[in-house]
């Protein structure tokens, strides 16, 4: 298991591995928003939590089609499926590697980019915390989507369409935590919902992902 995690991280950091793709996209979205919306700082601070969450979600989505497709193309997915690792474990590790290379950099970048969007001072803690709690769910749900579409050539479009509705609850509660935090309201309810969604997907979805991947490998 650890060997697989180390391999996936190493692949991500090598040339062409895709590390930084999501981060660069996130940077572009948040830098461009003030240009398109206008420099009115009241408007920007109002939409900042939502923009940061939407940018992080889209950046995550962008990197999903590499998650299993590369392993499928070169045949290593077949070999992993016949290896002594349980497929559920393989997919959980793949989701973890995806989070470490895509989700975690977004979490760390969000407070910095919040400055560009004039995020209110109270919001920095909550945008970071809500992304930290919410992005693992994006990776796990994304792995499920990747397992569903793994055999398809150019399955990226279908993958995005399939995964998008599954991302909606995380987006709603994540952005709500950040919005309430930024305006100084109580964040307890959306924060608990967000954490519940993340824990639920981590606990259940790897089994569904492994089941659909077994069907797709036939």
């Amino acid at each position: 298991m650890i060997a697989l995690l180390v391999r996936d991280l190493r692949l991500a950091f090598r040339a062409g591995g895709g590390f930084g793709l999501g981060l660069a996209f996130f940077l572009i979205v948040t830098v461009m928003v003030p240009f398109s919306v206008g420099p009115n700082s009241d408007t920007l601070s109002l939409i900042a939590p939502g923009i940061l969450w939407l940018g992080a979600l889209l950046a995550c989505l962008l990197s999903l089609d590499r998650l299993l497709a590369l392993d499928w193309e070169d045949g290593s997915l077949d070999l992993l499926a016949t290896a002594p690792l349980p497929l559920e474990g393989v997919l959980s590790i793949k989701a973890l590697a995806h989070w470490l290379t895509t989700g975690l950099p977004l979490v760390l970048a969000a407070p910095v980019l919040g400055v560009l969007l004039n995020l209110p001072a109270g919001g920095y803690l909550w945008i970071t915390l809500s992304l930290l709690i919410g992005t693992p769910a994006l990776s796990v749900v994304g792995t499920f989507g990747a397992a569903l579409t793994v055999g398809l050539k150019r399955g990226g479009l279908l993958l995005s369409l399939l995964v998008m509705p599954l991302y909606v609850p995380t987006l709603i509660f994540g952005a709500e935590v950040a919005r309430r935090g930024a305006s100084g309201m109580s964040v307890e309810t959306p924060l608990l919902m967000l954490a519940g969604i993340t824990l639920g997907t981590i606990a259940l979805l790897p089994f569904a992902s492994a089941a659909v991947l077994r069907v797709n490998l036939r």
């Binding site: 697989l4 391999r7 070169d74 077949d78 070999l79």
Partner: peptide, 24 residues
């Protein structure tokens, strides 16, 4: 099982490829 496809990671070295499968 060894399939048609080689199942190698092209950006990893020969040693790293083998060491990965040995550990798995």
């Amino acid at each position: 099982y060894a399939a048609h496809a080689d199942g190698l990671k092209l950006t990893l070295t020969v040693d790293e490829n083998l060491a990965f499968w040995a550990r798995v």
